[in-house]
């Protein structure tokens, strides 16, 4: 631990406070990206890959980039200052897992932009509902991860929500896929549409994986 004699920097826990803010900011980025993702999907389903959609895509890429930078800074600081030695590995993995969620969000938007799937209007509500559930699921895991740092007892509550929304997402995904395959669309279109259902649903599955590991970290973090 370094103690500075400069009156401006005399706060003993200054570096800790900065790092706390950076971790919060990182989680803000995950939440923000969720909102951008659902807005972008809404725009795509109604108006296709227009300028507004592209703007969302750029925004998502930028958020993901900032998230990456923040994650790296946090990781370096944790190692450089040898902070939380007993839980450092867990925290690092948690940050990587959350970063993976951001990558999936961003990746899905890019896939839509590149492949531009033709989604018939009858399935729009199904996709939007699935997206909302999945984003809520990820948001719950973000809250669980924040709680891991600030309020360990709340992790369990948020994890329960993650599991609930993941099941909901599964149900909605299955229902949507059944509807797609029951339609008169050609097999190639059906498979294309199924692919995007699976890609969106993967967010909820990943969120659940994070929640599972987080539950173990939380037990370890209890003194």
């Amino acid at each position: 631990m370094r103690f500075s004699l400069n009156p401006k920097k005399l706060t003993l826990f200054n570096k800790t406070r900065v790092l706390e803010q950076q971790i919060d900011e990182f989680f803000d980025k995950v939440s923000e990206l969720g909102l951008v993702f659902s807005s972008a999907l809404e725009v795509y389903l109604t108006d296709g890959a227009n300028d507004e959609f592209d703007a969302f895509l750029q925004q998502a890429a930028s958020i993901e980039g900032k998230g990456d930078t923040l994650r790296r800074t946090i990781e370096v600081e944790l190692y450089a200052q040898t902070l939380i030695p007993d839980l450092r590995g867990d925290v690092l993995r948690l940050l990587e897992d959350m970063d993976h969620l951001m990558n999936v969000y961003e990746g899905n938007l890019f896939r839509i932009s590149i492949q531009q799937p033709d989604v018939p209007e009858e399935f729009h509500s199904g996709y939007l509902e699935l997206t909302r559930t999945v984003v809520t699921c990820v948001e719950s895991v973000v809250l669980a991860a924040r709680s891991f740092f600030r309020d360990i007892n709340a992790v369990r509550d948020h994890n329960a929500k993650v599991i609930f929304y993941e099941t909901e997402a599964d149900k909605k995904g299955t229902r949507l896929q059944r509807a797609i395959f029951a339609s008169d669309l050609s097999l190639d279109r059906k498979m294309h549409l199924r692919y995007f259902v699976e890609r969106i649903d993967e967010l909820a599955n990943s969120a659940e994986d994070v929640a599972d590991t987080l539950a173990i970290y939380a037990i370890k973090r209890r003194i």
Binding site: M1, F13, T16, L19, F148, F149, R150
Partner: peptide, 25 residues
């Protein structure tokens, strides 16, 4: 001491990093 500390920490809800810094000191 352990029970007392656990009770205080549960009430205080310190940030993991803050707790780390305090524990170090």
């Amino acid at each position: 001491l352990f029970k007392l500390v656990r009770w205080i920490l549960n009430k205080a809800n310190l940030h993991l990093l803050r707790l780390d810094a305090y524990t170090r000191l």
